[in-house]
Measured scan of single mutants.
Amino acid sequence: MQIFVKTATGKTITLEVEPSDTIENVKAKIQDKEGIPPDQQRLAFAGKQLEDGRTLSDYNIQKESTLHLALR
């Protein structure tokens, strides 16, 4: 499925993911596309910060959802 990640600079990244993917996997995909190390990424959805060990389906993130990326 496709999801979107909006960066602090307003850029939107499109990612191909599975509901079973962990947040860690998603951060690795962002690193592949943007070169941002996962340990510098903070992802949020619906106002909640997402934890590495959880999956997209844990957070009820569905196709075409938009996550927000902040850098630490």
Rank of each mutant, 00 (worst) to 15 (best):
G47E: 14
K48V: 12
R54Y: 11
I23W: 01
D21T: 09
T7P: 07
A44K: 07
R54K: 14
L56K: 00
V26Y: 00
K48E: 06
E16Q: 12
Q31V: 13
E51G: 04
N25K: 04
S20E: 14
G10H: 14
S65V: 14
T66K: 05
T9L: 08
D21C: 04
N25Q: 11
A46V: 14
K63Q: 15
L15R: 00
K27G: 01
D58E: 13
E16D: 14
P19N: 11
L69C: 03
M1N: 04
G53L: 15
E51D: 11
E16R: 08
K11I: 13
M1F: 09
G53Q: 09
N25C: 04
G35Y: 04
A46N: 05
Q2H: 12
R42K: 08
G47W: 06
T9H: 03
R42D: 14
Q49N: 14
L50M: 10
G10Q: 05
K6N: 07
E34H: 06
Q2I: 09
F45S: 04
K11N: 09
D32Y: 14
L50Q: 01
D52G: 06
A28W: 15
L56E: 00
E64N: 10
L15C: 02
Q2E: 10
K63C: 03
Y59V: 03
Q62N: 13
L69G: 02
H68N: 15
Q41W: 06
A46S: 09
L67Y: 01
E34C: 03
L50V: 05
Q31G: 10
R72K: 13
E34S: 08
T55G: 04
A8H: 11
E34N: 08
L56Y: 01
G53R: 13
T66H: 14
T66W: 13
D52Y: 13
D52C: 03
Q40W: 06
A70D: 14
K33I: 11
A8G: 08
K27L: 04
N25I: 06
Q31P: 01
Q2C: 04
F4A: 08
L56W: 02
I61R: 00
Y59A: 04
E24H: 09
D52F: 05
K63G: 08
Q62C: 03
M1S: 03
E24M: 10
T66F: 10
K29M: 07
I3L: 11
D58A: 13
